[in-house]
Design a protein around this nucleic acid. Structure first.
Lengths: 144, 144
DNA sequence: TTCCTTGCAAAGGCTTTGCACACCG
DNA sequence: CGGTGTGCAAAGCCTTTGCAAGGAA
């Protein structure tokens, strides 16, 4: 897991203390997919030890986001997900039917971002956004 | 306020009972902008009477959404906003700095929607979506 | 030793639910 | 009158905060 070592080194460089909890949380996040909730991170860590509290998970994830090492995306409907920066920009396609999350290429948004900037003077943060809709499978099920 | 009469008529047609509370809530939503929280709807209704409860506002707004007369958009960060269907499709540009919400033309998204559909088989619901970023004013303030 | 981190419990904010009473149709 | 709608209070859910104890450096 070379990536999580990078993150841990970065934390140390920034003057943050390294604790077993932080290491495990970073490792869990680095192992996981592109969108993990705090609860999911905790579950993975709990496979190793019970000695981590959900509060610490939240605090560590926030720390990573503050330090620019992770991103936080609000998928709406109470779902807040985190990912390490290694998981580059992407677009979350969230199915309202089955809850599945598809990761799409964020470059699809580049043109949109420019247009919005030109027209409204608004600079959208398009690194990790979520769009709701219905996935292929659910669409097919519906029409059956 | 012809629009709220249409909505009220539609509710009645669908077999819903008309109460003073429902009428006032519908009227408030129709008067308001394109993104009102339940709390904001309540405030407007309260200018007329104290005899409405936030619970009823939530229930009525949910009713309108169920019946297809209003939309519900989760702007993230706990902000859920409602609008009547008369407020056609639009894009919410939410400033992370000042919280301001700019309404943009939803047609900007049409091409994106098609591309996503073709490439991922995912049908995005682009009627009322939210994008986060920084507005022109906050950008200028930052650079001063 | 210093003071950053952690865990626990409790608070917070927003939304939903249970239940008895009210009132529309 | 029957059954839907309302208000109140309380519960739920996820996240944050306060505070004392623990442990990294």
């Amino acid at each position: 897991m070379p990536h999580c070592h990078t993150l841990i080194a970065a934390l140390r460089q920034q003057g943050c203390r390294l604790t077993p909890q932080r290491e495990m949380i970073v490792e869990a996040l680095a192992h996981g997919g592109c969108h993990m909730t705090a609860e999911e991170v905790l579950e993975i860590v709990r496979q190793k030890t019970q000695a981590v509290n959900i509060t610490t998970v939240y605090r560590t994830l926030d720390l990573l986001v503050e330090r620019g090492l992770a991103t936080r995306t609000d998928l709406g409907e109470g779902r807040i997900v985190y990912a390490t920066i290694r998981h580059g920009p992407h677009l979350h396609l969230v199915c309202r039917c089955c809850g599945r999350v598809i990761e799409a290429d964020a470059s699809l948004l580049a043109l949109l971002g420019e247009t919005i900037h030109d027209r409204y003077g608004f600079t959208p943060q398009l690194e990790h956004i979520a769009l709701y809709g219905v996935c292929r499978e659910c669409n097919e099920t519906r029409n059956t």
